[in-house]
Nucleic acid binder design. Structure first.
Length: 562
RNA sequence: UGACCCGUGGUGUAAUUGGCAACACAUCUGAUUUUGGUUCAGAAGAGUCCAGGUUCGAGCCCUGGCGGGUCAACCA
């Protein structure tokens, strides 16, 4: 069985990146080395889209006996902060990946990058431009029209060298001058039209302080950093495809032998009912639509973790959606499937009633309490069993009783029988309504012989209900989360903002009753509230107050039918 | 009216040298079940964007269309 599974796993076809890597190994490119990197900018929290890249970068290295570096792409001090460095590292570790001692920063290479820029100037391949960004933009032309040369394009090497040095000495104000690569103002690729490679910035850098006054642009840092680190496969998302000629142009002028990194692009993650743009995520936090970056409704890794998603489920999800060059729209249902599949194996089953209705077993002794044995997880016997207290007064779910039930309703109603999970079969004899006409108490009788494990335990009844003993139950705050957006593509509307599609019911806070064994549950512990869904313990939990988050509901074929 | 990239069930992927279009999710049946969960068995759903061409044979190769995406930040 296991052997068969491994067989089919090995036969799993390769994605285009794996195929390329295998071909590179076969042909001996870069001496058969495989070295990748994950290059986040420390300007925000990682989200599930980053997880897709992390799984690829670290996964490829793992699979082919290579290494994967963590490199912070910190070339823009105005946007970056050390705060994010720590959260990014925590999230990668949580996902289960490790960069060992290979933690780098693009800012480590500022010196080398500066020297390389100087080399380009000496070769006549870079020049200082004194024009404003507006003027340069106008000269750049358009995708269909070639650009025109800057009047500063033919400055002498000496003047360029002098100017660039003085730019870095803080002699010129921000925005007054840039260094540009001299490539081709008529190139059909806009990125090759003398791209800016250095700009002046006086904002202190979170690592290098005020040592530098000029900072390299992304294009002038990324490929070179790959080169300095010996990266062989530089994997990034599709929108960088048009940058590749520039990446290659720079590497060509940097290479010393036949080693060279190669950029390959894959499709970015798009998830239905979700927004992954950093700008929008920031707005959600700043405008108070969510309670911070770790709000369980956020697609950030810290939010998903708090929501109860396991790292395994996120990795499995990434495995299942694959890596291609197609603009894909992934169904968030697949992510929900992944977490259910994982938690089904791992989460202990417990009793919790979220919308309580009191049920009194009229023929059960008033002062009696029985300890009912119940299994912790039917999917995994090694998780053992525990006992839960049973008594005359219990809570059941309000939805599990109907005064006038339809035929297909398997639960409780007048005269109907139902099993209380791990306890007895009971029969509804009567019920009481309050002044508003709402059912407030249900009266049942129980059949002692039907106790779980008892002589008539095998008797079949249609429904099985979960329950908690009223006097033993523990109160808990339960946060019922739902999708943050009601639209499948909240960012896909030209004239509307994603905020217009926020789900007003994405969070409902209620008080429920849970079985007493949950009193000592620890933050982030996962449980299945039987028949309701998967829940985990929120870190807001204090010794006196339990707080649970709903990770995801169980699959539900009953409510779909309605 | 540019360059580059991409078009396979509802969605996401697969089809290795050109050889019966496969898998997962979703959907729908049925069985099992002390969770309307899980598990198991099964069904329906594409003929591969279109039109040509090469070939005994094309999702795959060629040509031409059509559709979608990316690119004109001193962001990454």
């Amino acid at each position: 069985m296991t052997e068969h599974k491994e067989d089919s796993a090995e036969k799993k076809s390769l994605n285009f990146i794996e195929a390329m890597v295998e071909e590179d190994i076969r042909s001996g490119k870069n001496h058969g080395r495989v070295h990748t990197r994950f290059p986040p900018e420390p300007n925000g929290y990682l989200h599930i889209g980053h997880a897709k890249a992390i799984c690829l970068d670290f996964g490829i290295a793992e699979r082919y006996g290579g290494k994967c570096n963590l490199r912070f792409d910190d070339t823009n001090p105005t946007k970056e902060d050390i705060e994010f460095v720590d959260s990014i590292k925590e999230d990668i570790h949580w996902l289960g990946f490790d960069w060992e001692d290979r933690e780098y920063f693009a800012s480590d290479y500022f010196g080398k990058l500066y020297d390389f820029a100087t080399e380009l100037i000496k070769k006549g391949l870079a020049y200082v431009d004194d024009q404003s960004s507006e003027v340069m933009a106008a000269q750049k032309g358009s995708p269909t029209e070639p650009g025109t040369h800057s009047p500063f394009r033919e400055r002498s090497v000496e003047e360029n060298l002098d100017l660039f040095k003085r730019m870095n000495e803080g002699e010129f104000p921000e925005g007054s001058r840039v260094l540009r690569a001299k490539i081709d103002m008529a190139s059909p690729n806009m990125h090759m039209r003398d791209p800016v490679i250095y700009r002046i910035l006086f904002h202190p850098h979170h690592r290098t302080g005020d040592r530098w006054k000029v900072y390299p642009m992304y294009d002038f840092a990324h490929g070179q950093s790959d080169f300095f680190e010996g990266v062989t496969h530089s994997l990034c998302t599709l929108e960088f495809e048009v940058h590749r000629p520039l990446y290659d142009w720079l590497v060509e002028h940097l290479k010393e032998n036949d080693y060279r990194p190669r950029q390959t692009e894959f499709n970015r993650l798009n998830l239905s009912y979700t927004v992954l743009s950093k700008r929008v995520l920031l707005a959600l936090v700043n405008e108070g639509h969510v309670n911070g970056w770790d709000d369980p409704r956020m697609p950030t890794l810290t939010g998903l973790r708090r929501r109860g998603y396991t790292s395994e489920s996120i990795r499995n999800f990434n495995d299942s959606i694959g890596y291609t060059k197609v603009m894909a729209n992934n169904d968030v249902g697949l992510l929900e499937y992944a977490v259910r599949e994982d938690l089904n194996k791992k989460a202990p089953r417990v009793m919790a009633v979220l919308n309580p209705l009191k049920l009194i077993i009229t023929n059960y002794p008033e002062d009696k309490t029985e300890e009912m044995e119940t299994i912790n997880n039917p999917e995994d016997e090694s998780m053992g069993s525990r006992t839960i207290p049973f008594s005359r007064e219990i809570y059941i779910e309000r939805e599990d009783f109907m005064e006038d039930p339809p035929k297909k309703f398997f639960r409780l109603g007048p005269g109907r029988e139902v099993r209380l999970k791990s306890a007895y079969i009971i029969k509804c004899e009567d019920y009481k309504k309050d002044e508003n006409g709402e059912v407030c108490e249900v009266y049942c009788t129980y059949d002692e012989a039907t106790r779980s494990g008892g002589p008539e335990a095998g008797r079949k009844v249609k429904g099985t209900l979960h329950w908690v003993s009223a006097k033993h139950a523990v109160e808990a705050e339960v946060r019922l989360y739902d999708r943050l957006f009601i639209d499948p593509e909240p960012a896909g509307h030209k004239d509307k903002s994603p905020v217009d599609f926020l789900n007003p019911d994405s969070l409902k806070v209620i008080t429920g009753y849970v079985e007493p064994s949950l009193k000592d549950a620890k933050a982030l512990d996962h449980f299945q509230f039987q028949r309701l869904g998967y829940f985990n313990v929120d870190p807001d939990t204090t010794p006196g107050k339990l707080v649970f988050n709903r990770t995801v509901t169980l699959r539900d074929n009953w409510s779909k039918r309605k």
